[in-house]
Nucleic acid binder design. Structure first.
Lengths: 114, 114
DNA sequence: CTGACTGTTCGACGAATATCTTACAGTCCG
DNA sequence: CGGACTGTAAGATATTCGTCGAACAGTCAG
């Protein structure tokens, strides 16, 4: 019986950026991509920590996918946590909203990606 | 005395895009550039139709500048009108706000470009 | 331990894009 | 008209960015 106790994972923890430290330019650049828009929308429609990286229906390989999540982390949009072999995600909605009020709403309300 | 009457200019009128027809992706892409952010900010701080294209303090040549204005027009952010040899600009604030509420405010309130 | 699975990293490639230089087209003034 | 000025267009170049394939690392089940 292995409780998920101390010792933890031996994997490099994902590097996160606090939304408060994110520039407007970085935020807009992160959002100005069709794949990332789709990721954010799917993520917004799911409960926190329920979606692993590979569970998204995007038309790119896993290498590109990993890159996109890296960009999203760097923009303070997504938080990740290791859960067994998977890396589960959470949209940092409140925190990002505090930094850029209305921006996420705008993206999520908009009809179609383009 | 030449009133600026009919007959008008013999110059190709600038092509504008209605903000209503602009996709989120296009809007975000247009805004995700340091030079264009600066243009919009300067424009927001000036009265309508008072700034010609060449009157902006941006670190690019006039060819690149012309390109940036083209992108801004295509995103429904800027309206242009020919005035003698100059092309004067106007930020389409209300129209753009109607399509993407809060987006321009966000850009204009933010401290520093990055 | 071995094998299946998940995700990251690295190197390379192609496409999109930002930029410059040069040439050109209008507009206005003298 | 001719010259100064403003902006656009076209071509060339360079950089950025998204993508893939392959190799690698960590986790878990058997």
């Amino acid at each position: 019986m292995s409780n998920q106790v101390a010792g933890g994972s031996h994997r490099a923890a994902p590097v996160h950026t606090d939304p408060e430290e994110v520039s407007v330019l970085t935020a807009l650049s992160a959002l100005a991509d069709p794949v990332r828009i789709q990721l954010i929308r799917e993520l917004a429609g799911s409960a926190d920590w329920t979606r692993s990286c590979g569970s998204f229906d995007v038309p790119v390989g896993k290498a590109a996918l990993s890159h996109h999540f890296s960009v999203l982390r760097g923009a303070g949009l997504v938080e990740q946590r290791d859960q067994g072999p998977k890396r589960v995600n959470r949209l940092r909605r409140e925190e990002f909203d505090a930094r850029f009020p209305g921006l996420l709403d705008l993206l999520l309300r908009a009809d179609g990606a383009d």
